[in-house]
Simulated assay, not measured.
Amino acid sequence: MSDNITIRSACGDDAAALARIYAYYVEETAITFEYTVPDMAEMERRRQEISQHYPYLVAETDGKVIGYAYAHAFYGREAYTWSVESSIYVDVNARKRGIGRKLYEALEKALKSMGILNINACIAVPRDDQDPYVTNGSLNFH
């Protein structure tokens, strides 16, 4: 993989890549809070729903999607209108290359242009260093 990374809006053609990237986190970690891997159709349904109101971005290199980020409503009360929750997933084989940072910066820029004031992240933190399903990766990133 080259380090020429493009950030763009996700589209329907990305559904298989989104499902592939996300599957690792569902199957091998506890950070998604999901037990069943969503299929390609479900990932596309989610992308379409979120994209109606918020940015849904992908990182791509050499024509391959290697990460994605999106924001969605933080909480269903009116006072939270200017707040979102963010999610970022990077292909397990493409981590530690700054892709998450590039996605987050692009997401933050897009949200700022919408007038969003607060970006929140739900982060799983391990109880100790021996947890095989949760690391401090998200905590350190954020």
Rank of each mutant, 00 (worst) to 15 (best):
M1T: 02
S2H: 00
S2Q: 01
D3C: 13
I5D: 02
I5M: 07
I5E: 01
I7F: 14
R8L: 10
R8W: 01
R8N: 02
A10F: 08
A16L: 13
R20K: 09
I21S: 01
A23P: 13
V26I: 10
E27W: 01
A30T: 09
T32S: 10
E34Y: 05
E34L: 04
E34P: 07
Y35L: 15
Y35M: 15
V37P: 07
M40E: 15
M40W: 14
M43S: 04
M43T: 10
M43D: 08
R45Y: 14
R45C: 10
R45E: 15
Q48I: 15
Q52P: 15
H53F: 15
P55Y: 13
P55H: 09
A59F: 06
T61D: 08
G63D: 05
K64D: 08
K64G: 12
G67T: 07
Y68D: 01
A69W: 02
A71N: 06
A71D: 06
F74N: 14
F74K: 10
F74G: 12
F74W: 09
F74T: 08
G76N: 09
R77N: 10
R77E: 10
A79I: 05
S83E: 00
S83F: 03
E85A: 07
S87T: 02
Y89I: 05
A94G: 04
R95H: 02
R95I: 07
K96D: 15
G98W: 03
R101W: 13
K102Y: 12
Y104R: 13
Y104P: 07
A106Y: 15
A106V: 14
A106G: 05
K109C: 14
L111P: 01
S113F: 12
S113E: 14
S113Q: 14
M114R: 11
N118T: 05
A121C: 11
C122Q: 14
I123Y: 00
A124K: 01
V125Y: 02
D128V: 00
T135H: 11
N136P: 05
N136E: 06
N136H: 10
S138L: 13
S138W: 09
S138H: 14
F141S: 03
F141T: 03
H142A: 01
H142T: 00
H142V: 00
